[in-house]
Simulated assay, not measured.
Amino acid sequence: MEGHDVKQVAITGGFGFLGWHTACRLRALHGIEPVRLGRQELADPDVLAAALDRADTVIHIAGVNRAATDAEVESGNVSAAESLAVALRASGRPIDVVYANSVQAELDNAYGRGKAAAAGVLSAACADTGGHFADLLLPNLFGEHGRPGYNSFVATFAHEVAAGRTPSVTGDREIELLHAQDAAAALIAATGQDVRTRVAGEAIRISSVLEAFEEFHELYGGRGEIPDVSTAMRLNLFNTYRAAAFADAPAVAPQVHSDNRGDLFETVRSHGGTGMSYASTTKPGQKRGEHYHLHKIERFVVVKGEAEIQLRRLLHDEVVTLRVSGERPVFVDMPTLWVHNIRNVGEDDLLTVFWADQLLDQQNPDQFPETIAQEAHA
């Protein structure tokens, strides 16, 4: 969005997988609170018109991935575009559109035909109104909080393995994958442009994805150890696995070795990649954190005192609260795209050991301020 004066952004499909990731990225890196439009808003001309009245850019993500019939998949993608096109023309002014298209638009299948036809509908509307039209063909997407059985096989594998089950691979082959945050970055960067481009992902075998999740489950799910996250793909897959596993296992207890001198336990065992440890003291009643990360792995281990850790998924209201104590140390790892804090609820100073997989970069710290309670009912 550099060089483009954006008043407001609307996202169709704003409550879905890619829509949520895009809204989070706009907030984190651009300070923009987008108008998020779901199926009901897209189907209501008055609501849609009001949303566009406040926007000069629409990121069109809404569509149909799966339905009862191929005809519904094809027509569903076209009808979503047609609803937006009607509103664009009715606005009476240029509104830029960035379209989250698919590489399948170049294939002859129901989904591809629907996505390709939708591009034609939106391109014509922008031509009529004078708005820019960016058509981005995206490969298979994956990332945190994808819906198993719907968004991708990656989401399905992550949830199955995190639950202790063993999914099988049929028709193993290479698949081009793109993390949802990288897709969101491409969509945002295309704002204000007339362009049709294919966004490249990384090719990986389906079986390799499953093997990575099984490795993560053994090391991390079983022992709280950090696997090798030295490549972007492994880090993104690990964060996807962590998001799937967090609900059932937000804290892991280490093995404590005790003798007459006291207790000893490991706080981090990492199998590859960068990392740094640091510690803090926190006075009674005081709080640390109140931020979130896009990619960083961050671990909290309270070694002395009593604390309360709060976590909230970005753009959601529900808060997860964990009570932890130095008397019974546990590992609590902060999921990516979750706001988190730690507060001293004891009477003495709190001593906490932290670990992050990234060396601190003051110019790009991957740390975005946000309060736990800020968004409730906003």
Results as ranks from 00 to 15, higher is better:
A244T: 09
N260H: 15
A251Q: 13
R261D: 03
L237P: 03
G275F: 06
T274F: 04
V256H: 06
N239C: 01
G262K: 05
S258Y: 08
N236Q: 14
F246Y: 14
S277W: 07
Y241P: 10
A279V: 12
F265N: 05
R261A: 10
S280Y: 07
Q255G: 09
L264A: 15
N239F: 00
P250F: 06
M276A: 14
Q255K: 12
Y278E: 07
A249L: 13
V268C: 12
Y278C: 12
Q255T: 09
A245K: 04
F246K: 11
V252A: 09
H257R: 10
S258M: 04
A247N: 07
A232K: 05
S277N: 15
T274K: 09
F246R: 13
G272E: 00
Y278L: 08
P254L: 04
H257P: 01
A247Q: 14
P254F: 03
Y241R: 10
V256I: 15
H271P: 04
S277V: 14
R242F: 07
N236L: 01
G273R: 00
T274C: 03
E266P: 09
T274H: 13
F246G: 04
D263Y: 00
T274R: 11
Y278M: 13
D263C: 02
A251L: 11
G275T: 07
R261N: 10
D248K: 13
M276G: 13
S258R: 14
V252P: 01
A245E: 08
A243K: 06
F238I: 01
S258A: 15
G273N: 00
A251C: 13
V256N: 05
T267F: 06
A279L: 10
F238T: 03
R234W: 05
E266S: 11
G275A: 09
D263N: 12
N236E: 11
G272Q: 01
R269N: 11
A251R: 13
N260F: 07
A249T: 15
G275R: 03
R234Y: 00
A244Y: 11
R269V: 15
P250K: 14
A249I: 10
G262F: 05
R242M: 09
N239D: 10
F246I: 06
D248L: 09
N239W: 00
D263P: 02
A251S: 12
A249E: 09
A249K: 15
S258F: 03
A279C: 12
T281Q: 08
T240E: 06
A253R: 13
M276F: 05
E266G: 13
Q255S: 12
P254C: 07
D259M: 11
S277L: 15
G273A: 03
T274Q: 11
E266Q: 12
S277C: 09
R242W: 02
S277I: 08
A244S: 13
N236H: 14
D263R: 15
T240H: 01
L235T: 04
H271T: 01
A245T: 02
R242P: 06
D263T: 08
L235A: 07
F238D: 00
N236A: 14
L235Q: 07
M276Y: 02
L235H: 05
N236T: 02
S270L: 04
M233E: 03
N236V: 01
T274G: 07
G273S: 00
A243F: 07
R269L: 11
